[in-house]
Simulated scan of single mutants.
Amino acid sequence: MSDDGFFSRWSKRKQEVKAGREVEPEPTAPPAAPVVANAPIAEELPAPAEPLPTLDDAQALTPESDFRRFVAGDVPHDVRNTALKKLFADPRFNVQDGLDVYIDDYSKPDPIPPAMLRQLASAQFLDLFDEKKKKEQEDEEGREAADDPTDQSVAQSPQAETAVPPDADPDLRLQQDDAPGPAGPGERPE
């Protein structure tokens, strides 16, 4: 081939066709092998065929071994899997980065701090804490001290009898409702 570029050769052929001269066919070169930069010369020669690795070879691997021949396309799957298990069992490759979203065990609940648990209505309803009983005991002790006639310096009036037992919670007692009820069907509100 000449040092001319493609366009200069094309131009010369076009001018020769216009002048009526016969044009020589372009010489065809055999396709060149792709050139790989910095490729060692030994790779250009076909390598002698190595036998395929076996399962015993995969089990004899160490972290410093060369794993390239075990991941080739023609290696059996069980040999490849065994070699990769050996590779990833090495602590250098068996480290989680901590950025994984689902790395925690979410089946273990976080304990609720006792101060927050005391504020929950369900904890109070279930009597998880004895604060209410403790308060009732303190109130009872205060009542007993107040009812003790030896420490009283002021005369007390007699207590009136009530229909409600004295130990009943006042919020739970039924109250009389004197308000008129809702108007029924066909009735006029008053």
Rank of each mutant, 00 (worst) to 15 (best):
E144H: 10
T150D: 07
A123C: 05
N38F: 15
K12Y: 06
D130T: 11
K135F: 01
L61H: 01
L99E: 11
P40R: 15
V79K: 01
S11W: 08
K12S: 05
E140G: 03
S65I: 05
K14A: 11
A58L: 04
V23K: 01
V36P: 00
D57P: 03
E24C: 07
Y102T: 03
P46A: 10
E22M: 08
D78Y: 13
Q137F: 05
D74Q: 15
S11L: 10
D57H: 07
V95F: 09
P114L: 06
K18Y: 05
K85N: 12
V71P: 01
P114Y: 09
A146R: 10
E43R: 04
E140L: 12
D90E: 14
S65L: 05
K108F: 01
T150Y: 00
R80M: 14
H77E: 15
L55N: 06
R13M: 07
S153G: 12
L84G: 02
G20L: 04
K14C: 07
L120F: 13
P30Q: 09
N94E: 12
A33V: 13
K12A: 13
E50C: 13
A145H: 03
G98L: 09
D130I: 11
P46C: 04
F67T: 06
A47I: 12
P51K: 15
V23D: 00
Q152P: 02
E22A: 12
K85Q: 15
E22F: 06
F129W: 04
T150C: 02
V17F: 01
A83G: 06
V17K: 02
T82R: 03
D110M: 10
E144S: 12
T150A: 12
A123S: 07
D147E: 13
A37I: 14
A37N: 03
K12Q: 08
Y106R: 03
K85D: 14
V17G: 04
D110Q: 11
R143L: 08
A83Y: 00
P113H: 02
A146H: 12
P40Y: 09
K85H: 09
A19W: 01
L55P: 08
S11R: 11
F88E: 01
L99P: 01
L99V: 13
M116I: 12
P76N: 07
V71M: 07
L52M: 14
P40L: 14
A121S: 09
D110P: 00
A83N: 02
Q96K: 13
V101M: 00
V154D: 12
T28L: 09
I103T: 02
Y102H: 00
K85S: 14
V101L: 05
A115G: 04
E131V: 05
V95W: 07
P34C: 03
L128K: 09
L120P: 05
G73P: 05
A39P: 04
F67C: 10
P113S: 09
K86G: 10
E16R: 01
R143N: 06
T82I: 03
V79Y: 06
L52F: 14
F125A: 12
E26P: 00
P27F: 05
S65K: 00
A19H: 01
A89M: 14
A42H: 04
V95C: 08
E26K: 09
P76C: 05
L52R: 13
L61D: 06
R143T: 07
P30F: 06
P25T: 07
P111Y: 09
Y102C: 03
E64N: 14
A39Y: 08
L45Q: 08
L55E: 13
S122F: 15
V95Q: 10
